[in-house]
Structures are given as structure tokens and as C-alpha cells.
Amino acid sequence: MKTIVIGVIGADVHAVGNKIIEYTLNKEGYNVVNVGVLSSQEDFINAAIETSASLIMVSSLYGQGELDCRGMRDKCEESGLDQILLYVGGNIVIGKQDFTEVEKRFKEMGFNRVYPPGIKIEDVLSTIKQDLGGN
């Protein structure tokens, strides 16, 4: 069974979507470790190390995701998580920005998958299965 670490990064307290993600991934047969809201990069990374996770899924809804996520890939690699998959989604930037540009910036920061505001976890499941090679 593959382990996925989820949570809400930075000073963000949006818990409802996080709980929906946890419920849906559990229902799909994944082992979900939820670091909750107000989480630092280190919270995600430490949980991934402790549980041998395959994927870290970062949520952010308050618009500061770009600042909160900067340098996360480097920290993962420094911690020995060279192969970890990094997903990010939500309202990850402030204001109306062209999502193609936002996605490009996050991918340059080392994120494997970048999701726009309003995407539902159900719409991401096939990508998760593809990236993780099943459960």
C-alpha cells in the first residue's frame, strides 16, 4: 500500500478540503498521513521520511503557496527524498494569473504536478494511480 502525505502549508487554516482529500484517498486504498493545517515544509518532509511515503500532496488556499513552497524540492533531496513525488494545488498564488505560467513556475521549483483552483481530488486520482503505479 502506497503512502501519501497530505496537508495545508504555511499560515493556511483551510481544513475542509484537506479532510475531503484524506477521506477520498483512504477510500481508494492509500495509506494517508495528514499533517493537518498550518504545516511547514519540514512537517511534510519529516512525515514522508517516517512513513516511507511515495508522494507529498501540498494544499494551499490563501494565496501564499508560491512563497510557502519555495525550496521544498531541495529540502526533500537534502533529506534523502530524491524520488518523492511532489503535488501542489489550490489557490496557490495571489490574484488572477495565467495558470500555465503558475504551473511552469511550480514545475521549475521541482513540483511534479500542479493543480489549479477548484480541482476536485476525484479528478486527480487517475494521475496519482499513473504516477504511483497502483497501490
Rank of each mutant, 00 (worst) to 15 (best):
L67I: 14
E28W: 03
E101P: 03
F106E: 08
Q64T: 12
M109K: 06
L86N: 12
L61M: 11
S79A: 15
E28H: 09
S59I: 09
G65L: 04
E101Q: 14
S40Y: 07
N91R: 15
K96R: 12
V124M: 11
E108C: 02
D123C: 03
Q83C: 03
P116C: 00
M57D: 06
S39C: 13
E50M: 09
G29T: 00
I94T: 09
D123A: 07
L85Q: 10
K120W: 04
V35A: 07
Y87H: 10
L125E: 00
S126E: 14
F99Q: 04
G63A: 04
F44G: 07
I92H: 11
C69H: 01
L55G: 12
R105N: 13
Q41S: 07
N112I: 01
Y87I: 10
A48V: 01
F106N: 04
P116N: 02
D98A: 08
L125D: 00
N31A: 05
G90V: 02
E28I: 04
G36D: 01
K27M: 09
Q97I: 11
D68I: 12
C69K: 04
G90M: 07
T127I: 14
Q41E: 14
I92A: 02
R113E: 05
G95N: 09
Y115P: 02
A47L: 09
N112R: 02
Q97T: 02
T127R: 07
Y115R: 14
C69L: 09
S126F: 06
K104F: 08
L38Y: 14
G95K: 06
G118W: 05
L55A: 07
G110N: 07
P116H: 01
G90L: 13
V124Q: 06
R70V: 09
Q41K: 14
L125H: 08
F44S: 02
D82S: 11
Q97R: 07
G65K: 03
D98F: 05
D68W: 12
R70F: 13
K120S: 11
V58R: 01
R105F: 00
P117S: 07
G29N: 04
L55Y: 10
E103N: 08
V35K: 05
E103Q: 13
E122F: 03
I56S: 05
L55S: 05
K107D: 14
F44T: 07
S126A: 11
E101A: 09
G80D: 11
G71S: 07
A53S: 15
L86A: 05
D98S: 00
S52L: 13
N31V: 02
G36H: 02
N112H: 13
L86G: 08
E66A: 01
E77L: 14
I49E: 04
K75S: 10
R73Y: 13
G89D: 02
L55V: 13
Q97S: 11
L86H: 09
S52C: 06
E108N: 15
N91S: 05
D82V: 11
K120C: 08
K75N: 12
G36W: 04
N34G: 13
K75M: 14
K120L: 14
E77H: 05
Q41D: 04
M57L: 15
